[in-house]
Computed example of a mutant assay.
Amino acid sequence: MSELASKQCIPCTIGTPPLRGEELKEFHRQLDIGWQVVDEHHIQREFNFKNFRQALDFTNQIGELAEAQGHHPDIYLSWGKVRLVVYTHKIDGLSESDFVFAAKVDLMNKPV
Rank of each mutant, 00 (worst) to 15 (best):
Q69H: 01
T16L: 08
K50Y: 09
K7V: 13
S2C: 08
D57P: 02
P18N: 06
A103K: 03
G15Y: 01
S78V: 02
V85Y: 05
Q54L: 15
G70K: 05
E22M: 04
L77K: 11
E26I: 15
N51P: 00
R29I: 09
R20P: 04
H41G: 05
V112Y: 14
L84N: 04
L24E: 13
P73H: 12
P17Y: 01
I75E: 14
C12L: 01
K50T: 10
H72E: 03
F58N: 06
H72N: 06
Q8G: 10
Y76H: 10
C9R: 00
F49S: 01
I75M: 13
V85L: 09
N60I: 11
F27R: 02
H28W: 09
S6C: 12
Q30H: 02
E46G: 10
S78I: 05
S2V: 08
P18Q: 08
Q69F: 02
V38Y: 11
A102E: 03
S97Q: 04
K90R: 10
P17S: 13
G93L: 00
Y76P: 08
D57N: 12
L24K: 06
D32A: 11
C9M: 03
F99L: 01
T13G: 04
A55K: 15
H41T: 02
K50A: 13
A68K: 15
T88L: 01
N48P: 06
F49H: 02
